[in-house]
């Protein structure tokens, strides 16, 4: 069986930064108050009236060469199905080495003590649904799928559209792509 590589694509041309994804994620995953697993970044460059904007919905990059998995002393941070990086709550000591190792600062300590972050809604994916953020997004900014499947929508988009990733210089090989 071919190994899937789950990726998420964020179409920055379409994202209006409405935060529907952020809130859908919070309610789907019961994210505690005051924390978020994903967030919106709005960048504006230039001086009035010559301006350029980019809005991104962003989250854990589920890196293929994930520094958090390397840094974890107990194996709690691990690669799950499709290369999705998960934290096994029962194995996490809350030592926070993974938090320090994450170039995207995508993790946080859950009030219950374990380290928490985006799971690409693998529980939904495993039953054939899309992640909550991707499902809710009113602008269809978010695309999720298996980049290793040449017939998938994400693979097609990665072939046909110009894209970038956040801080490629980290060498972490992120799997969150921004279509530009």
């Amino acid at each position: 069986m071919r190994n899937p590589r789950y990726v998420m694509l964020v179409d920055t041309r379409l994202c209006v930064g409405c935060k529907a994804c952020v809130l859908a994620c919070k309610s789907e995953n019961n994210v505690p108050d005051g924390y978020c697993r994903e967030w919106i970044v709005e960048d504006i460059w230039g001086e009035f009236p010559d301006l350029r904007a980019e809005i991104r919905s962003t989250r854990c990059n589920h890196c293929s060469n994930a520094p958090c998995v390397d840094a974890c002393p107990t194996g709690a941070s691990h690669f799950a199905l499709g290369g999705v990086v998960l934290v096994d709550h029962d194995a996490c000591t809350g030592c926070k080495a993974c938090i320090a190792s994450c170039p995207y600062d995508a993790r946080y300590v859950h009030p219950d003590g374990y380290v928490d972050k985006c799971t690409f809604c693998l529980h939904r994916v495993a039953r054939g649904e899309l992640p909550a953020c991707t499902t809710v997004c009113p602008t269809r900014t978010l695309h999720f799928g298996d980049a290793n499947d040449p017939h998938s929508e994400v693979a097609a988009l990665l072939r046909s559209r110009e894209w970038k990733v956040d801080h490629p210089e980290t060498g972490a090989e992120p799997n969150l792509y921004f279509l530009v």
Binding site: T74, T93, G94
Partner: peptide
């Protein structure tokens, strides 16, 4: 004291992770 999940401290000794200095 720094561990946020103190009850799981034993997990340090249920794995050896060569990539992790912490381990």
């Amino acid at each position: 004291l720094d561990l946020d999940y103190k009850a799981h401290v034993f997990r340090f000794y249920m794995a050896f992770r060569p990539s992790s200095p912490m381990s």
